[in-house]
């Protein structure tokens, strides 16, 4: 494994800090949205767009690009903030999140915003779509890959396991899924709402290569994706242990912050915690 250069690591951390700030600002301004599961995938998305994915913000429809599918579409604020941070559209758009006429819909809409590969929002559907894209890549003998982010509550949907079988059956080693394993869903801990058992054992039993990582550690994320190159003929599942609400002390590990916007006072308190970057540089440089 190649150690991440110190400079690159700093750059990713700096980006992530801005992205967290943007996520909370957007949700605060909109007065609704899903902070918990957005904050838990910030490092995953930052590592993907900042280091892993072969994508070009100036040519978002480039044919042989890697695809990222946010199957847990309610974490749209994280995806929007990351896409804006990497130049897919102006950061000034973020303030229109969830407003009438905005391309930043409550859940991602591929027809309204560049960089969105498929519209999501109804849970459980992204992995099937990823498989379809991966089959297309194989048919075309192209080397691009499809990355999918699944929520842990989301894998309670039966379609996920249909798709898990399909990916293994068709030997889709160009599908790489992340499980945002923060152990909370709207109604509470997944262990109380609907136990997941051992996700690692389940995915292995379905024929996937499985790794478990700290989903907030860039080196681990990048190493895990690098290792998937060796998964010949098998799809990869990277189980990312994460903290729901990561980065805002009073939101961390609280199911109640799944789909609630902070009020004015909470917004101020949250933003005060998220100041590890130079805000002046941030706006559409």
């Amino acid at each position: 494994m190649v150690a991440l250069a110190a400079e690159k690591l700093e750059e990713l951390k700096e980006k992530a800090a801005r992205i967290r700030y943007d996520i909370i600002s957007m949700i605060g301004e909109a007065g609704s949205g899903h902070p918990g599961g957005s904050l838990s995938i910030v490092e995953l998305l930052t590592a993907l767009y900042g280091y892993i994915l072969n994508v070009d913000p100036r040519n978002p429809q480039k044919l042989e690009r890697d695809r990222l599918i946010l199957s847990k579409g309610h974490a749209a604020p994280a995806l929007y903030a990351v896409l804006a941070a990497y130049g897919f559209f102006p950061c000034s758009e973020l303030r229109n999140f969830r407003r009438l006429g905005s391309p930043l819909q409550g859940h991602p809409d591929m027809r309204k915003l560049p960089g969105i590969e498929i519209s999501t929002g109804s849970l459980g559907q992204g992995l099937s779509v990823a498989n379809g894209m991966a089959l297309a890549a194989k048919l075309n003998a192209e080397s691009w890959r499809v990355f999918v982010i699944l929520g842990d509550g989301e894998i309670q949907e039966g379609q996920i396991w249909e798709a898990a079988m399909t990916a293994a059956h068709y030997r889709l080693d160009n599908v790489i899924a992340f499980l945002d394993y923060n152990r909370l869903q709207i109604d509470g801990p997944t262990s109380e709402v609907m136990s997941l058992g051992s996700p690692a054992e389940k995915w292995r039993a379905f024929g996937w290569d499985v790794t478990e990582i700290d989903g907030h550690n860039y080196q681990e994320i990048i190493d895990a994706v690098e290792r998937t190159r060796q998964s010949k003929g098998r799809p990869s599942m990277i189980i990312a242990h994460t903290v729901k609400g990561k980065g805002v002390s009073f939101m961390e590990n609280e199911a109640s912050w799944h789909g609630t916007a902070p009020d004015a006072k909470q917004l101020k308190a949250a933003l005060a915690e998220l100041t590890g970057f130079q805000k002046e540089e941030h706006r559409d440089e």
């Binding site: 590969e117 992995l127 779509v129 894209m133 297309a136 379609q159």
Partner: peptide, 8 residues
């Protein structure tokens, strides 16, 4: 869902 991905 798979058909959607192929079309996309």
């Amino acid at each position: 869902g798979t058909a959607a991905g192929l079309a996309a």
